[in-house]
Amino acid sequence: MKRLYVLYDPNCGLCTRIRFWLVRQPAFIAIHPIPLGSPQAARLFPALPQSGKSGELVVIGDNGGVYFGDHAWIMCLYALREYRATAKRLSSPKLQPLAREAFTFISRYRHSISRWLGMMPESEMLILLKGVITPWCVS
């Protein structure tokens, strides 16, 4: 596996923040974030199987392996150089139920958490940036 496509919710500030954090980390497997429901996602993965929950994190390896929810989150950590050991620990039989609970909780309340922490989602950032009038370059 050389690439990991991370399909995240662009309407969630927390997810947007984590997306930028992920791509800044040194990684064993290159992380390619793609907003869920974007044309790019539809073009790359027209046959993406649905996990049932809308907006849930989905991670796809370039070998075709698809991971949902807490598995997806642990796979993101697995891709990172500094966090591979943590991913291994979190996927151990003892810790995995706890990791799943934590992930499900954060995932369910991600919009509220983003609001409380004042994190702006990518979709809002784009709208905001569209409103900015860029000055003409004077040559």
Binding site: L44, A47, G61, G65, V66, I74
Partner: peptide, 15 residues
């Protein structure tokens, strides 16, 4: 190796 097998497998012609 990855900590667990994938939840589903996709055919990847587009990438």
């Amino acid at each position: 190796p990855p900590p667990f097998p994938p939840d589903a497998v996709l055919n990847m012609p587009g990438t």
